[in-house]
Amino acid sequence: MASQLDRSNPATFIPLGGNTGDLRAETNQVKIARFERLASKLFGVSNCLIYLGDLATRFEPGERSMAAIEAMFCSSLVLAEDLFVVDDTTKHHEIATHPLVTGAPYIRFYVAYPITDQAGDVVGNIALLDYDAHPFEDESRLLLADLAVLIEREIASGILYQAHQELIRQHRSLKRESLIDPILGTWNKAAISRSLQIEMDRCSKSEKPLALIFATLDQIAQIRDLHGIAFSDIAMVRVVSRIRSCVRPFDALGRFGNDIFLIVLPGASLLVATAVAERIRIGVMSHPDQIEGELVQLTISAGIVSTDMYPNAEPEILISLAEKALLSAKTAGNNHVAQASFAQPDIII
């Protein structure tokens, strides 16, 4: 079954490549929540909050859940730059008067440990909270330090992942740019030639025909001579838009030469290709263009060839036949569609 991607428009057709595009990195909050659950069980406390930056952003404004209140308590304290242990908050000279200690929910135990970045700067804390006072033994202190190392490595891994994803995006962008005609936004010659080979192999395996249309704007040289390259490019861009409206999403459109378009029609017989070429010809002819205030009648000429007529032809032969057919259409006086024939003159335009 043919893909519904628009192969005439490279912007919709660049494949992601391999399985990389299927990767979905977990959000930082999901990773942090996993560590928080582990820490709560590991240290036997009511809650663990791991935060990088402002804890308040994790909750809705005005939220009064227990977790939000605990986050408010942590945010109100200075970010710990070393292990900070308060076995009993009611006996600590600074925290004892805190409203969440003297009043509900009556926090009685608090431990904080710094999280550092690769430069060694403190970027966050691991905070352990409980509602009963109890000691924090040496083994627990070592475990908390180990947990901090794991979190820091997870953060570093996430940074590397994001950097890797950015490199992949840049690579795809460069690859896309290398395959696209910068003026028209179609495939360039190398890309459309590769597409032709791929589609020929696919159609051959499925025993389906494949057709080519070679087309050119009849007035392009005249527009360029009278109005300049910029206006000729504009005319070509408009023609590309009309061609795309006349082909299927999975047909491929490319700029094969300076003024020549190559359209690859997988699964199309000569009859179908003729109908498509005629539709394109009428579509272009029906839309005159304004160029520097002058109404210009645009027409195209097209040559077509299909593997149902030349089943054993290689891509180069099909291209040559399509070029000859285009020459025949031009010779007939422009605004024509001509079918390929071995009897046509061996001249490449």
Results as ranks from 00 to 15, higher is better:
Asp6Arg: 13
Arg7Trp: 14
Asn9Thr: 08
Asn9Ile: 11
Gly18Phe: 01
Gly21Gln: 03
Gly21Met: 01
Arg24Trp: 06
Ile32Val: 05
Ser40Leu: 02
Leu42Glu: 07
Phe43His: 03
Ser46Lys: 08
Asn47Thr: 12
Leu55Asn: 11
Ala56Met: 07
Ala56Phe: 05
Ala56Gly: 09
Pro61Ala: 02
Ser65Trp: 06
Met72Ala: 13
Ser76Gly: 04
Leu83Cys: 00
Asp87Val: 02
Thr90Val: 08
Ala96Thr: 15
Tyr110Leu: 06
Pro114Asp: 00
Ile126Glu: 01
Phe136Ser: 01
Glu152Pro: 01
Ala156Leu: 06
Ile159Asn: 07
Gln162Met: 09
Glu166Trp: 08
Leu167Gly: 11
Gln170Cys: 09
Leu174His: 15
Arg176Pro: 07
Glu177Met: 14
Leu179Arg: 04
Leu179Trp: 04
Ser195Thr: 14
Ser206Met: 07
Lys208Phe: 11
Ile213Lys: 01
Ala215Leu: 12
Ala230Glu: 14
Ala230Phe: 09
Phe250Thr: 12
Asp251Gln: 03
Ala252Arg: 07
His287Glu: 13
Pro288Asn: 02
Gly303Asp: 08
Val305Tyr: 06
Thr307Asp: 05
Met309Gly: 11
Glu314Lys: 15
Ile319Leu: 09
Ser320Pro: 13
Glu323Trp: 03
Lys324His: 14
Val337Ala: 04
Ala338Gly: 01
Ala343Val: 14
Pro345Arg: 03
